[in-house]
């Protein structure tokens, strides 16, 4: 009993640096500007106002930008799942010539920071007239460096499946794709869940690429939109930024709360476990 109390106590203390900034972000978005810099900071707004939330939608097509972020993240998630499940399966369960070298090539993608390749990528997409479209934000994460982690997780999952499963399927006359689609993929739900959440979050948080590739407000994504809440002189409108940030974090938080069991257990069942 003592021990339990101690664990709870430690957990509570540990919570502070995680929760307080979010609490502060949410409550400060309700404060008038003059209160934001008050010292000591106030825990609750003394005169709450929804003014900032009104401005979020008034100054920019925030709803539209929200939808952009959402649909890009969804497309990237689905696309990544397809790409990484196929590749992960092949790397895990098929012995084919060149597999080793291909795997090393693919893994190298994990090691190249996006700042390194942003300029050549920009030139490539510009060559095809795809700057200021959502294509770079979809294609690069789906096929490029960020998808490697997904492929890796998928591979680690498929590798744990017993060989007998596939042999049974083979007896039933299934080919490679049949084995993948009918036998292995249905078992991969946990890995799919984990990859989906990773991928969605990555796309949702993407910052450098949208800033470089997009230029019309109608096409912006949320992280980029946050930086646009500035007054006439480039001075940030703090409470409006924080209101927009709160709006952008809430739905993902809710999805996590609902899906977290799937997520944690999914990870536990992939090859990531001990």
């Amino acid at each position: 009993m003592r021990l339990k109390l101690l664990v709870y106590g430690v957990l509570l203390v540990c919570c502070v640096p995680f929760v307080f900034p979010i609490w502060w972000m949410a409550t400060t978005s309700l404060k008038p500007v003059s209160e934001i810099f008050a010292f000591p900071p106030t825990l609750l707004p003394t005169s709450p106002t929804l003014e900032a939330y009104r401005q979020v939608f008034e100054l920019q097509p925030f709803g539209r930008q929200y939808l952009n972020s959402l649909y890009i993240a969804l497309v990237v998630t689905i696309g990544t799942l397809a790409v990484s499940a196929l590749a992960g399966y092949a790397f895990a369960r098929i012995r084919f010539r060149g597999a080793g070298i291909v795997f090393v090539i693919v893994l190298s993608g994990l090691l190249v920071p996006n700042e390194v390749t942003i300029i050549p990528l920009y030139r490539m997409f510009d060559t095809f007239g795809l700057v200021d479209t959502h294509w770079p934000l979809i294609l690069i994460p789906m096929l490029g460096a960020p998808s490697v982690l997904a492929t890796f997780i998928m591979r680690q999952f498929f590798i744990t499946l017993p060989a007998e499963l596939e042999e049974a399927g083979r007896v039933d006359g299934l080919g490679r794709f049949g084995l993948f689609w009918r036998v292995c993929l249905p078992l991969a739900r946990p890995a799919i869940g984990a990859v989906a959440i990773f991928t969605f979050l990555h796309s949702w948080n993407l910052y450098l690429e949208p800033i470089v590739f997009l230029s019309s407000k109608q096409k912006f994504t949320i992280p980029q939109a946050l930086t646009q809440y500035v007054d006439a002189y480039g001075g940030p409108m703090w409470n409006t930024q924080l209101a927009a940030a709160t709006l952008s974090a809430l739905p993902v938080l809710i999805i996590f709360v609902l899906a977290q069991r799937q997520f944690v257990e999914g990870l536990a069942q992939t090859g990531l476990k001990g």
């Binding site: 920009y122 030139r123 060559t127 230029s215 019309s216 930086t227």
Partner: peptide, 21 residues
């Protein structure tokens, strides 16, 4: 009229120029 955030203005502009846009 394309608004680029104040802080990353010159950077973004240069990227566009460097990228040929």
């Amino acid at each position: 009229f394309e608004s680029i955030p104040f802080d990353s203005y010159t950077t973004t502009l240069t990227t566009q120029i460097g990228g040929g846009n």
